[in-house]
């Protein structure tokens, strides 16, 4: 295994962690939305508007947290 291999493995691991954190925290939802808009030819709303709608949804959905 060369230094380049180790390097690329580290880069891949770093990308994986970033991917996971963005998916887990819901940050990636914006990307999903943009992609869907492109696919269906819709004009996307602003990020601010998008996040506001997500917050309104959260307002009506109970979020259970266990003991």
């Amino acid at each position: 295994m060369t230094a380049a291999d180790v390097g690329s493995a580290l880069v891949r691991a770093g990308r994986g962690v970033r991917w996971y954190l963005r998916e887990f925290s819901g940050e990636a939802r914006w990307d999903d939305y943009l992609r869907e808009c492109t696919e269906h030819g819709h004009e996307p709303v602003s990020r601010r508007e998008f996040e506001r709608r997500r917050a309104d949804l959260a307002e009506r959905t109970p979020m259970s947290r266990c003991c």
């Binding site: 925290s25 819901g26 940050e27 990020r47 601010r48």
Partner: peptide, 14 residues
């Protein structure tokens, strides 16, 4: 921060 300054940047805010 997430509402007005940088909407949706959860990781940054966290």
């Amino acid at each position: 921060y997430l509402r007005t300054i940088r909407p949706g940047r959860v990781l940054e805010a966290t």
